[in-house]
Amino acid sequence: MTQEQLADATGLTSVHVSRSLMGPAADGLIVCEKRFVGIPERERLRNLCGSSELYLHLDHVA
């Protein structure tokens, strides 16, 4: 997904998205190459954010 696509999907400007990605990129949580953003350590990023795999999948909650 490109930074422009991230901006469109979140309703933000591409400049704001670019600046917001600088911190996580510096910490190695994301990799920005050319126009693309990758998440090499998805589990580490999920733990940092406190995200759950079940988010928006409430039909799978026991």
Rank of each mutant, 00 (worst) to 15 (best):
R46F: 11
N47W: 12
L6N: 06
Y55Q: 12
L54G: 05
R42C: 11
E43R: 05
G23V: 06
V17E: 06
T13E: 10
R19K: 13
L58W: 02
E4L: 12
E53D: 14
T13D: 07
H16W: 01
G50F: 10
Y55T: 13
R35F: 00
A7P: 06
T13W: 01
A7I: 01
S51R: 12
A9D: 15
L29A: 05
I39Q: 02
H57P: 05
F36L: 08
S14A: 12
P40W: 00
E43S: 06
L12D: 02
G11V: 07
M1I: 07
I39V: 09
I30C: 06
S51Q: 14
L56T: 11
N47F: 11
P24E: 04
S51Y: 15
F36A: 10
D8S: 09
A26P: 00
C49M: 08
R42I: 09
A25E: 02
K34S: 03
S51W: 12
H16L: 09
L29W: 15
D27L: 13
R46T: 04
C32D: 01
T10M: 15
Y55M: 02
A7V: 03
T2G: 13
M1R: 04
G23N: 06
L56H: 14
L29V: 07
E4F: 08
Q3A: 11
F36M: 12
L12I: 05
E41C: 09
D59H: 02
E43T: 01
E4D: 12
H60S: 13
S20H: 06
L12G: 04
R46Q: 06
A9I: 09
A7W: 05
I30E: 04
R35N: 11
G50S: 12
L48K: 08
L29S: 00
V61I: 15
Q3G: 15
V31W: 01
G38S: 13
I39E: 01
D8C: 02
N47A: 08
M22D: 03
G11I: 01
I39M: 02
S18K: 13
G38T: 05
T2N: 11
H60G: 11
T2R: 13
D27K: 08
F36W: 05
L6A: 12
D59I: 01
V37A: 15
M22G: 00
V15Q: 03
V31T: 10
A7R: 00
E53W: 03
V61N: 14
